[in-house]
Simulated scan of single mutants.
Amino acid sequence: MTTNPKLGAMLHITPELGQTPTQTYQSFTHLVKKLDQMGFDNAWVTEHHFNDMSLTPSPLHLMGHFLAKTEQISIGSAALLVGFHNPIEVAESLAVLDALYPERVLCGFAKGGPFESQNSAFKADKDLSRARMIEAVPAMLELWQDQTESTHHGEHYQWNNVNLQPKCGLQNSRLFIASGDELTIEMAVKNNLGLMAAQFWDMAKIHQQISHYQKVAQTVFKQPKKPNMMAARGLFVHQNSAVAKQSALEHIRSFREQKAKHWGKTPGPMANLDPEEMLSRMLCGTPEEVAEKVYSLLQNGVTHLALNPLTQNHLVRCDQLHWFYEEVWGQFLNKDTKQRQSA
């Protein structure tokens, strides 16, 4: 099993019925404070644009706000769509956050999902956005690491003699790439970055990510290397398994119907999955059933687990995360402690 696994929560910033944006942000600020007090390791902010079901068009602002309101929890992006932004500005913003909150900033990078409205507005389809990301991330690492000036002449970005200030102490172990694309995973390996798996990816796809990472690492470093592997998972726990699964499916159906307008002609994730297949990719059921699924994830290489409670109700969301922490996660903390003590 993964040693010292990290537990986090996904913050999609979805409003309850009738909530204003201000009220929604206040609710999630309350949630992050509770996660910090409970002992969660991290919380993750998404990046979505023109989306009333995910009020996260500016994840770096939200990260700074949540970091300022908490004491210990790390806050990250899952994931920042760097292909939509100027990489120098992204590098500067992350460097400032890292200087303000050392060892508490995480960052994942992605090309972006199949959202026609945002791809059109930022003039970047998935192929262009991916190409920009593959170029931008290593270039940002150079900006952070070069002690004097950095020059970059690439296909999509160019700059001369940039001396980024402040310098960034953000360690590569706190950076992740969200992609199943082989070329992108190769970039992650060469730069010693972790990987991210989306909530709707099955275990076979996560295995494929990890396997390709290890294959490339063996070629590049001449030795085996496992990635930091962050996986998001939908969550609904109930003492009655049928109630948990029905509640999860109802939320997924409602959420997909509301988000369908953002996908345009492209079918959304899980569009062709039957209910049982969808549930197999979620943490739904009794505490015992959920614990078994979590154990399988950790056994198969997941090092960072990020939970997304399958509800729009703020109180239920808080209860789900608290219940998971008390009824499920404690088992793994205790097991990990015993394993390390006996090693």
Rank of each mutant, 00 (worst) to 15 (best):
G180K: 14
E326G: 02
T2F: 04
F50C: 10
E142A: 11
Q165L: 10
Q218G: 15
F50T: 09
S342H: 08
Q312D: 12
N334S: 05
C284R: 12
L62N: 10
G264L: 08
V316Q: 13
G180R: 13
N86P: 00
K225A: 04
A68V: 08
K34W: 04
A95H: 08
M63G: 05
W144M: 06
C107S: 09
A306H: 02
H12R: 06
Q258P: 13
H262L: 15
I13R: 01
D181R: 00
M196L: 15
L321M: 15
E257V: 13
E327M: 05
W201N: 11
F200M: 15
D146H: 11
V220S: 01
Q199S: 15
Q19S: 09
S342I: 12
H207F: 14
E47C: 07
F84G: 00
I134R: 14
E89M: 00
Q145K: 08
L333I: 09
K123F: 05
L97G: 01
F109V: 00
M1W: 01
P138G: 10
K259W: 02
A110N: 02
W144L: 06
L310F: 11
Q331F: 00
E149S: 02
A231S: 13
K205A: 13
G268W: 13
D181P: 00
K335V: 10
M10W: 03
F109I: 01
S58G: 06
R174M: 04
N191V: 00
F332E: 10
F50M: 15
I185Y: 12
S296Y: 10
F332D: 07
S280F: 07
E135I: 10
E277Q: 14
I185K: 06
P114H: 11
N119E: 11
D98P: 02
D319A: 15
G64P: 03
K126P: 04
H12F: 08
Q147P: 02
T311P: 07
L235P: 10
V137R: 02
T20Q: 13
E116T: 06
A248S: 09
